[in-house]
Write a protein that binds this DNA or RNA. Structure first.
Lengths: 111, 111
DNA sequence: TGTCGGCTTGAAGAGTTCTGCAATTCCACG
DNA sequence: CGTGGAATTGCAGAACTCTTCAAGCCGACA
C-alpha cells in the first residue's frame, strides 16, 4: 500500500464533502442535466454553482459538454452513484446509533 | 428527501476527507487499537492525532475506551470499512479513467 | 500525597476553502 | 457587426480547517 494513496483517497472524500457538490452528484445520478436545470433545482448563485462544478470536473468525477448555448453535465462513467448510496445507508446507521446512544444517556440520567 | 440530509452527508464525507483520519480508519478496520500504537503507525504529533481522533469521535464513527493508562479506539459498529473499500475501488477507477484520458490526449497531440 | 506517563484540550497563527460581485467568454440570432 | 443570454473566471473578504505549543486531566505506582 503506497503512502500517497491515503492522500488521494482523502482528497476524493474532501471533494464530496460539500452540500452543493453532493446535490449535484445526486441529481446527475438520474442522468445528464443542463446547468440551467441544476440552477433551478439547487437555488444558488450561478457563479457558485460553476465553481463547484469546476471542482467536480477537475477531479474527473463529472464531464461537461456544450449543446449550443447550454452546457450539459454528466457523471463521467465512474460509479459515484453507488458510493452515494452506500454513504446514505451508512449515515442512516450512524444517526440511528447516535439516537440510540442519546436515548440511553437520557434514561441513565433520569433513572 | 429532507433538505438538511444533504448537509449531513456532505459533513460525513468532509470528516473522511483528511489523510490522518483515513489512515486511522484503515488501521481500525483491522480491529481496535491503542493510541500508542496508532502513534507508532502514523508518524505525527500526539496532539494532532488526538485532534483527529476527536473529530472521528464527535462524528460517532469511532469510540474510545480507557484500559488503565492507555486508550483504545475502535470502529463504532458502523460499517465504515465497507465504505472505505468502495472508495478505494472507485478511486482506482477514477485514476484509470484519468490515465486513459491523458494517454488519449497525448496521442491526439502527437498524431 | 506527590509525581510520572499517556492522552486530551485550549488557543493562536498559517493556510485553505467558500461565497458573491464584477468582468469575461462563447455562442446564437437579428 | 452588435446585442443578449448562458456559463465561466478572477478576485477579495469572510469563514473555516490544520497544526503546533502549552497547559490540563486522569490513572498508576511509589
Amino acid at each position: 500500500m503506497p503512502v500517497p494513496l491515503y492522500q488521494a483517497r482523502a482528497e476524493f472524500f474532501r471533494i464530496l464533502g460539500h452540500p452543493v457538490r453532493i446535490r449535484v452528484l445526486d441529481l446527475l445520478s438520474d442522468g445528464p442535466m443542463a446547468v440551467r436545470d441544476l440552477l433551478v433545482a439547487i437555488e444558488i448563485e450561478p457563479s457558485n454553482l460553476s465553481q463547484q462544478l469546476a471542482v467536480l470536473r477537475r477531479a474527473g468525477i463529472v464531464t461537461a459538454t456544450r449543446a449550443g448555448t447550454t452546457v450539459v453535465y454528466a457523471l463521467s462513467g465512474v460509479d459515484v452513484a453507488e458510493l452515494l448510496r452506500a454513504a446514505r445507508r451508512i449515515l442512516a446507521e450512524v444517526l440511528t446509533c447516535q439516537n440510540a446512544l442519546l436515548t440511553e444517556l437520557r434514561e441513565a440520567e433520569l433513572g
